[in-house]
Amino acid sequence: MLIVLILAGFAVAVVGSIGFIGLTIPHVTRFLVGVDYHSIIPCSAVLGSLFVVFADLGSRMINPPYEIPLGALIALLGVPFFLYLARSKA
Rank of each mutant, 00 (worst) to 15 (best):
S44F: 01
G9W: 13
L57V: 09
S44M: 04
L50S: 10
S49H: 04
A75W: 05
S39T: 15
S59E: 09
G71W: 10
G58C: 04
L76A: 06
Y37K: 11
V79H: 13
L47C: 05
F51R: 01
V14L: 11
R30D: 02
F20G: 00
M1P: 03
G16T: 09
A11W: 14
M61F: 12
R60M: 01
Y84S: 06
V14C: 15
D56I: 07
I74A: 03
V4W: 13
I21D: 00
A45R: 12
I68L: 09
G71S: 14
Y66A: 08
Y66E: 14
L73G: 06
D36S: 07
L23R: 02
V33W: 00
I62R: 03
D56Q: 11
R60W: 01
V33P: 00
A90K: 08
I40R: 11
A45H: 07
I3Y: 05
I3C: 05
Y66I: 08
I25S: 00
F20S: 00
L76S: 04
E67P: 07
A72C: 15
H38W: 14
F82Y: 11
A75Y: 04
L77D: 02
L83E: 11
G48R: 00
L85C: 06
M61E: 08
G9E: 14
L47V: 10
V35M: 03
I40E: 01
A55D: 03
C43S: 05
L7S: 08
R87D: 14
L23E: 07
R30S: 14
I18S: 15
G34L: 02
C43P: 05
L70Q: 06
T29S: 03
S17I: 13
L73W: 11
F51I: 03
P80G: 10
M61R: 04
A86E: 11
N63Y: 04
V28H: 02
R30T: 05
F54P: 08
E67C: 12
P26Y: 08
R87A: 03
G34F: 01
G78E: 09
S44Y: 01
P80V: 07
I6S: 14
S88P: 03
N63W: 07
P69H: 13
R87N: 15
S17V: 11
I74Y: 15
V15K: 07
H38L: 15
V14S: 06
T29E: 01
H38G: 08
L85F: 09
G78Q: 07
K89D: 10
A75H: 12
L83A: 15
M1A: 12
L50G: 02
P65N: 13
V53K: 09
P65L: 10
G22T: 02
I62C: 12
F51P: 01
V4E: 06
A8P: 12
L23Q: 01
S17W: 13
I68Y: 11
H27M: 09
C43Y: 09
G34Q: 06
F54N: 05
Y66S: 04
T29L: 03
A90H: 09
L47S: 05
G78Y: 07
F31V: 08
F54S: 13
R87Y: 10
A11K: 05
